[in-house]
């Protein structure tokens, strides 16, 4: 009986070895380990054995069954893997076909530019403030040292609604409003981005509606060198470390001294070209030390407080930085234009 078991084991292992499919393998399992299989038969005949032989044969039979089972499992795993492999090969796809599209939009270029400016100044401790686009003559002009008959009012001809109401020509009224709100005894560090309006005929460089970002810093002991330092940080960050920056005197009714800031021309590196009108420099910012009259009207004592203010036009900055050739692109919303600036 011992020999019979050993023969059975050998035969079973041979057949497992030769099995080519999972079905073959199952036949082998049924043939050897099934209820009517030879091993079961052997075990069934155990009753006839002597008490000494019974445990020995029993153990052997279990061993043989276990060996066959192990071999069957291993072979089964191997065959299953082969089947899976084949199945996966059949599932091969063309990975170069396009993905299923997910619609994506994006921000307007001006929004991106304004956001970048905001984030930079927020990083320097500025807050972002907003104000009404329909302003009073007082906040738009008078509180900024532009009384009713001031000649400088001519240079920014305005859209009036009534004698006292107009579309703001600058975002500086937000500064005046903030000063009034802070009641002359706290420092102010703010920028105010927003839409402004002027009586200009729309063309490649003019737009009756455009964007401004203005900044104001009021505190004790603010120096003009601080203005230079802060704006220098802005310019280097925004346009690149390699750009030269130039400060030159200018005039705004709400600042004294006033300054205009030029950066070296990116195209000609200061040698002079058509973009910079042969000067090598491009004007990008205006600013200055807050005029004492403006401080006074805002409720700040100019003997105690000083401050600086600055302003810039995101359209112009975007045009310079990204080479946009016509300001009207910003407001036509041609999708082919907008999409160029959707990437992060």
């Amino acid at each position: 009986m011992k020999e019979r078991l050993q023969e059975l084991e050998q035969e079973a292992l041979n057949q497992v070895e030769q099995a080519k499919t999972l079905a073959d393998l199952d036949k082998v399992r049924v043939a050897f380990l099934g209820k009517k299989g030879p091993i079961t038969e052997v075990l069934r005949g155990m009753g006839k054995l002597s008490a000494e032989e019974r445990p020995v044969i029993g153990e052997l039979a279990n061993k043989v069954r276990s060996a066959i089972t192990t071999e069957l499992e291993q072979k089964k795993a191997k065959l299953e893997l082969a089947v899976l492999d084949q199945q996966l090969k059949a599932e091969t796809i063309d990975v170069t076909l396009p993905g299923r599209p997910v619609p994506v939009g994006g921000p307007h270029l001006l929004t991106s530019v304004v956001r970048e400016i905001e984030d930079l100044f927020i990083g320097m401790g500025f807050e972002v403030r907003e104000g009404p686009e329909v302003e009073t003559d007082y906040y738009n002009f008078e509180a900024l040292n532009l009384p009713k008959d001031h000649p400088a009012r001519d240079t920014q001809d305005s859209f009036y609604i009534t004698e006292e109401l107009l579309l703001r020509t600058q975002t500086s009224p937000v500064q005046a409003r903030t000063m009034n709100e802070y009641k002359g005894n706290q420092s102010i560090k703010m920028i105010c981005p927003g839409k402004v309006y002027r009586r200009d005929t729309d063309d490649a460089t003019h737009s009756h509606q455009f964007t401004q970002v203005e900044g104001l810093y009021v505190d004790k002991n603010v120096r003009m060198s601080d203005l230079k330092g802060v704006l220098n940080q802005f310019v280097k960050h925004f346009f690149g470390e390699e750009r030269e920056i130039r400060f030159r005197p200018s005039f705004f009714p709400f600042t004294e001294p006033s300054v205009e800031i030029d950066i070296s021309c990116k195209l000609c590196h200061g040698k002079g070209c058509s973009v910079c009108k042969q000067t090598g420099w491009i004007e990008i910012l205006g600013g200055g030390m807050v005029h004492p009259e403006v401080l006074r009207m805002g409720g700040y004592d100019p003997e105690v407080y000083s401050g600086f203010a600055f302003g810039m036009g995101p359209e112009r900055i975007a045009m310079l930085k990204y080479g946009v050739d016509d300001i009207r692109h910003f407001y036509t919303n041609d999708i082919r234009f907008l999409k160029q600036y959707h990437q992060a």
Binding site: G105, H108, L110, Y197, H208
Partner: peptide
């Protein structure tokens, strides 16, 4: 809204 597929536009207030 941009993530949902829309492109931002800026038009005139007037």
């Amino acid at each position: 809204l941009e993530g949902a597929g829309l492109s931002e536009a800026l038009t005139y207030s007037l």
